[in-house]
Design a protein around this nucleic acid. Structure first.
Length: 418
RNA sequence: GUGGCUAUAGCUCAGUAGGCAGAGCACCAGAUUGUGGAUCUGGGUGUCGCGGGUUCAAGUCCCGCUAGCCACCCCA
């Protein structure tokens, strides 16, 4: 019979293998430890949400239209695989009554997110994020708390050599007027801008500021800056954020071109970069205030601030930085039956498992090959069963480090292995 | 969504001017009358990504598709 084409993984997704997982676990363990230290509790929200929840906030942006994993289920409901965690966490905060408890709700989450974009290095259609949210407070101190938490986590996973970039983008009171000024500045220059930026001019002028096109670069420096046009409340918030960062001795660089494309973002925005590289693709994580999101989802207006980081990139960088994670052998003990001693081997393994992780080599190959396998596995001991010894309920216990070997009764194994 | 590069053994890859499918590693076996690591010897395990086309002959040339990598768009 002809072999059929083997079915491979879906485009843009990947498996994380046993050898890589210690690194991921180290990253997540550090996240849990740091989050708890700051009084944040874990929450798990569904991967599936109503497409509308995701689309409410940014319906007319390209990213939503183009990159949302969206489909109709069997009942005809329009669903989406979450592209980020915040929308779902905010939904849960209201829907499940976390808004009834002490405010703000301090929450964190790790899990898979989905974007239908073209895969490339460090960018997958299914990727993983750490997400931290403080919902239900407008306190500037929380902006700094989230930044400090994020910084501590990155330090803890060995990526402490960081650059923090910081900006404010105002709020619904002061931003519209600023955007008008920005348009007024750029309109006479329109013909000289890149085609992309000409489009941005009317639709999303903030984006002009973080354009990567060299054609746009000369005009940036004299463009009006939002920090000169903040309303009193936003200016006070911005002032307090920086004062708190100073007192926490957290260094940052002001980047007036750091923006967010969506309307519900307000005031503080920040991003972490490895101190070496400056490219936008190298960001280790970022976040900011989103005081307008709850309302965009149809809930009462509620202030919140958050941070998200891509674990794919963080773990990749951890590996590159040489973060050493102890790789443990899958089993301390390998039971090696000689010949047809399957039943005895299973029983001996059962005895050993009382004190040590134990695997059995059931393959029909030579003893030398089985010993090779035991060595490769990294087993500390081999329990060798021969028909003769097995009939006396005995076995050879071999210490793979020293090479010493002695015959023991099966019942003695737990004491010797402990 | 756009562009460039790539796809050959389990893995990394070589394969000339179109003419019998190769190497290293891994794996299996033996040297070792069944006891790992080191060494030596032997063994190729294959739908040359998939589908068409050109040709006496295609891994090689042409077209389409799929996938990967890289960059763009975008990054909520």
């Amino acid at each position: 019979m002809p072999r059929s084409e083997p079915i491979k993984a879906v485009r843009g997704v990947r498996d994380i293998l046993p050898a890589e997982l210690p690194l991921w676990h180290a990253a997540e363990l550090a996240a849990t430890a740091v989050a708890r230290r700051f009084g944040y509790e874990e929450i798990v929200t569904p991967i599936l949400e109503h497409a509308e929840l995701i689309e409410r906030a940014g319906e007319n942006t390209d990213a939503f239209a183009k990159e949302l994993y969206r489909f109709d289920d069997r009942g005809g409901r329009a669903l989406a695989l979450r592209p980020e965690a915040t929308a779902g966490v905010v939904r849960a905060y209201f829907e499940r009554g976390l808004n009834q408890g002490p405010q703000p709700a301090r929450l964190y989450l790790t899990g898979p997110m989905f974007r239908y974009d073209r895969p490339q290095k460090g960018r997958y259609r299914q990727f993983y994020q750490l997400d931290v949210e403080a919902i239900g407070s407008a306190a500037a101190a929380l902006d700094v708390e989230v930044i400090e938490l994020a910084r501590d986590w990155l330090r803890e996973v060995g990526l402490g050599d960081l650059r923090l970039e910081l900006n404010t983008i105002g709020d619904s009171k002061c931003r519209p007027a600023y955007l008008e000024r920005l348009r007024d500045y750029y309109r006479p220059l329109k013909e000289k801008l890149s085609p992309d930026s000409q489009q941005r001019l009317e639709r999303n002028p903030l984006r002009l500021l973080d354009s990567k096109s060299e054609q746009d670069a000369p005009f940036k420096s004299s463009a009006p800056q939002i920090t000169d046009h903040l309303c009193d409340e936003c200016a006070a918030h911005w002032e307090l954020v920086r004062r708190l960062l100073d007192s926490a001795e957290i260094e940052y660089t002001l980047n007036p071109y750091l923006v967010r494309g969506l309307d519900y973002y307000t005031r503080t925005v920040f991003e972490f970069f490895p101190s070496g590289a400056a490219g936008q693709q190298d960001a280790l994580g970022g976040g900011g205030r989103y005081d307008g999101l709850a309302e965009a989802e149809g809930w009462p207006p509620t202030a919140a601030v958050g941070f998200a980081s891509g674990l794919d990139r963080v773990t990749e960088l951890m590996a590159a930085t040489g973060v050493d994670v102890i790789a443990r052998p899958p089993a301390d003990v390998l039971v090696v039956p000689d010949g047809d001693l399957v039943v005895a081997a299973a029983e001996v393994a059962r005895i050993c498992r009382a004190v040590r992780s134990t695997a059995v080599d059931y393959e029909s190959k030579s003893l030398a090959a089985k010993m090779r396998a035991a060595n490769k596995l990294g087993a500390k001991w081999v329990v060798l069963l021969t028909p003769d010894a097995a009939s006396r309920r005995s076995a050879q216990l071999r210490d793979m480090t020293s090479g010493e070997q002695e015959e023991l009764e099966w019942v003695e194994l737990p004491t010797r292995l402990a």
